[in-house]
């Protein structure tokens, strides 16, 4: 009895398989589609974003530039006009809007150099960092405080008060020295070439004693 039933079903086995096959294939068409998550996982992005390691300070950058450290590239994410006005030495201009252009990606998605983003504040640089980090690009940093902080710390460092600790003075002198590297002139460091102060060198009078004529002496 059971064998007969099984045989009856089994005689349709190819048709049943064909139907299963079509249902599975049709299921792919009918399934609701969704936008897939691209890039790294959200947990990883959050932990990267919370890490203080993604910032680099202006002092560190100044130190790297002065020592001609070849291991990093500076990316200016402001627009072209501001870039042409002022930027850090050897910075590359990639405005935030063009960050995923083909020629920009070559700079950002590589493993050889540290990429350091900066803008006026770290606001736009942070956005650039976030966009790139999400796609899994490596070694990305943000200049903490951006160019504004660069000006207040490196280019125009504030002089510490007398009651400040010793480290503040040391930091000030380091910053002052680096600002001089970037072309700032300090009045106390300028070697003046003032000709009016020059005193005329007195003429040296060399007295030459003339030989007195002597009366001819008798020879032999």
């Amino acid at each position: 009895m059971d064998k007969k039933k099984i045989a009856k079903v089994a005689s349709f086995r190819y048709k049943i398989l064909a139907i299963i096959f079509l249902v599975l294939a049709g299921g792919l068409v009918l399934l609701p589609k969704y936008q897939k998550q691209e890039g790294i996982k959200s947990e990883a992005l959050l932990s990267h974003a919370n890490s203080a390691e993604r910032y680099i300070s202006t002092d560190q950058i100044a130190n790297k530039i002065i020592n001609q450290d070849p291991s990093f590239i500076l990316i200016d994410v402001r627009d072209e006009e501001s870039y042409n006005n002022y930027s850090l030495p050897n910075a590359i201009n990639i405005p935030l809007k063009k960050i995923f252009d083909e020629e920009s990606i070559a700079y950002l998605n590589q493993n050889e150099f540290d990429v350091i983003f900066f803008s006026n504040d770290n606001f736009y640089a942070d956005q650039a960092w976030m966009l790139c980090d999400r796609l899994g690009f490596k070694n990305l940093r943000v200049l903490n405080g951006g160019l504004n902080k660069w000006f207040t710390t490196i280019i125009n460092p504030t002089k510490p008060n007398d009651d400040m600790p010793d480290q503040a003075f040391e930091l000030y002198t380091t910053r002052k020295a680096s600002s001089m590297y970037f072309g700032v002139a300090y009045p106390d460091q300028v070697i003046t070439d003032d000709s009016s102060l020059k005193t005329e060198t007195p003429k040296q009078v060399i007295t030459v004693q003339k030989k007195k004529k002597k009366a001819a002496e008798g020879g032999c």
Binding site: Y14, A18, F21, L22, A25, G26, L28, V29, L31
Partner: peptide
């Protein structure tokens, strides 16, 4: 791709 797969499967069954 989903329609391609569906049509491909139908072609397969017809061919069989």
């Amino acid at each position: 791709p989903y329609w391609v797969i569906f049509i491909f499967s139908m072609i397969a069954i017809v061919a069989f």
